[in-house]
């Protein structure tokens, strides 16, 4: 097990490098530059800019410089935001996204697991239909619709919560709920499906036959196996949540990493894009590793050689 974890951890570095390299190539192909604007900039200034950032060097040289910088853990300075180191930008904006993402995921997990479990146990009951309909609603209302709707109700009808911007606990409620809705729905549906699948497997039948109480059958045995799909889903979902979600950040004017990532892509701010991609890829891989480890604990049938 330890060897497995170690091997996977070691793999993360080359994997992140591959992700960064592919992204680097994509930026090169994408049209436009970070300095383009409506007003043409003076030719000499453009030449100096290109010289300063080595944009006219042969590609392998640029690639080499990029790799060696990253190998030193230094992603360089943002092109768009004069003088701001990429590492600093990520460190500065990550906490906003992370707080909102984590809270949203915990909320989603709590709601989704409970609703999904009850729905599965009482398949085809009124609760099942009601909660699954609610889940479907959560899925079919896009967050760019849900967010403004919540603002309308809670900020302008009830005058309870601020409509946007970061500042204090009250300002977190609406974005967290907006973000959590869709994930709660996912989790509820995946839990229900997973549980239904497991409930008819041999080991549950065995457990029941042993005369275990229904409660312990579910909590000790069924939930473990039934959670697999939820766990699979959690890895990438949590990584994506922590790294920020653009729409919610835009609607609520939160200075999170998601919006900055999109902006950096649109601005062709290469060092910033690469820095965030490297960060996200490491995050995704770590979470997926945790998920793979969790598989083993949840379901003893899964073994890694």
């Amino acid at each position: 097990m330890l060897g497995f974890i170690l091997k996977r951890l070691l793999l993360i570095i080359p994997m992140a490098l591959i992700a960064v390299s592919v992204t680097w190539a994509l930026i090169r192909v994408a049209p436009g530059t970070f300095y383009s604007s409506e007003k043409k900039i003076p030719a000499a200034v453009e030449a100096k800019l290109r010289e300063k950032y080595g944009l006219d060097d042969p590609w392998y040289k640029q690639y080499g410089i990029m790799l060696s910088n990253i190998a030193r853990g230094d992603f360089g300075i943002s092109l768009k935001y004069e003088g701001q180191p990429v590492n600093e930008i990520i460190a500065r904006h990550l906490p906003y996204s992370a707080v909102i993402g984590l809270l949203a995921y915990l909320l989603a997990l709590a709601i989704g697991l409970v609703a999904g479990t009850i729905a599965a146990l009482r398949q085809n009951s009124a609760f099942d239909y009601a909660s699954m309909a609610a889940a479907m609603l959560g899925l079919s209302v896009p967050n760019f619709v849900l967010g403004p709707l919540l603002v309308l109700v809670f900020s302008f009808w009830l005058y309870l919560l601020p409509p946007a911007r970061w500042g204090g606990f009250t300002s977190l409620i609406l974005p967290v709920v907006t973000l959590a809705a869709i994930y709660a729905a996912y989790i509820a549906r995946l839990t229900r499906a997973g549980l239904l699948e497991v409930m008819r497997s041999d080991y549950i039948r065995t457990a029941r036959a042993k005369g275990l109480s229904e409660r312990s059958v579910i909590l000790r045995h069924a939930l473990r196996g039934g959670l697999l799909p939820v766990v699979s889903f959690t890895g990438p979902a949590l990584a994506a949540l922590l790294a920020g979600t653009v729409v919610v950040e835009k609607v609520f004017a939160i200075p999170g990493l998601g919006n900055i990532f999109i902006q950096s892509v649109l601005n062709r701010d290469e060092p910033l894009v690469l820095g965030i991609v490297a960060f996200i890829s490491v995050l995704v891989m770590i979470f997926n590793l945790i998920v793979d480890i969790a598989y083993g604990f949840i379901d003893p049938r899964i073994r890694y050689e």
Partner: peptide, 29 residues
């Protein structure tokens, strides 16, 4: 399972990390 599983899943991991907006921009261009 084993090595092949590892390789295939790592490819998925990499694809997760690449910004698909950038892919779309490039595809369009």
């Amino acid at each position: 399972g084993g090595r092949i599983d590892n390789l295939m899943m790592r490819i998925v991991d990499i694809l997760y990390a690449i910004p698909y907006i950038l892919i779309v921009v490039v595809l369009l261009a």
